[in-house]
Design a protein around this nucleic acid. Structure first.
Lengths: 113, 113
DNA sequence: AGCTTACGTAAGTGTCAACTTAAGGATTCT
DNA sequence: AGAATCCTTAAGTTGACACTTACGTAAGCT
């Protein structure tokens, strides 16, 4: 999971993900979209592959890459869980704060009376 | 956005985020949850702050940190957009693949006829 | 077999990130 | 003012990361 998060923290890798998301593409095809060297792209592809975010298929001298739905879904669920777990906590905290303010204001009234 | 993604790619920072999510906590309080030095935590706090994921409040000699809902929400929306944009693409790709298979199988039948 | 094509891997470099210890504010207490 | 507390910033180290060029490998072509 760590690997997946690190993987998508890199802009070029996110761009690669978008490229292979709806179509299988060869390494060369992918590399052509960027102005860095091909080995650089090759290395990004390895990172994505090791994070289980893409899938590699070899055909002749070519290597085709495409999105790996299971890995992507796992990452999405992790993030969603992170948010869910916490946004509800944030909400509780906000409500608590509201109550605190309400009490404080009631105290003001008592003191001023 | 980049900064926020990099920020949450670090396990300790995610843990810090969870700590300050539903309660404001002092730097020392936060640091007590980890077995790295306090400066290390201080630096993580700075990263989170610069990514607009937490908020700092000074009171006397203490510094209190809490979640920064706007920044977190922005990050959440970015990720959701990323998924939405792409999961629909994945879905289209899957359907296309289905049609391809269907055509192939129809072709088989024609060839075999 | 030899040449070409399409890639990856190796090795080296500059930069950034996470950590450490040491030193420097800022605020409060006496 | 001086001492103590709480925390950050500074400086230095180590390892990771994104990139480069050079080399290696596997499949197809002649």
């Amino acid at each position: 999971m760590e690997a997946a998060l690190k993987a998508i923290a890199e802009p070029r890798r996110r761009e690669i993900l978008r490229l292979v998301w709806d179509a299988e593409r060869s390494a060369g095809d992918i590399a052509a979209h960027f102005d860095v060297s091909r080995p650089a792209i090759s290395q990004h592809l390895r990172v994505l592959k090791e994070a289980d975010l893409i899938f590699e298929r070899r055909e002749g001298t070519r290597r085709y890459y495409r999105a790996h739905p299971e890995g992507l879904e796992e990452l999405r669920e992790f993030l969603e869980g992170f948010w869910e777990e916490n946004l509800s906590a944030l909400k509780r905290a906000a409500e608590k704060e509201e109550r605190r303010k309400a009490r404080a204001s009631a105290g003001d009234r008592r003191r001023h009376a």
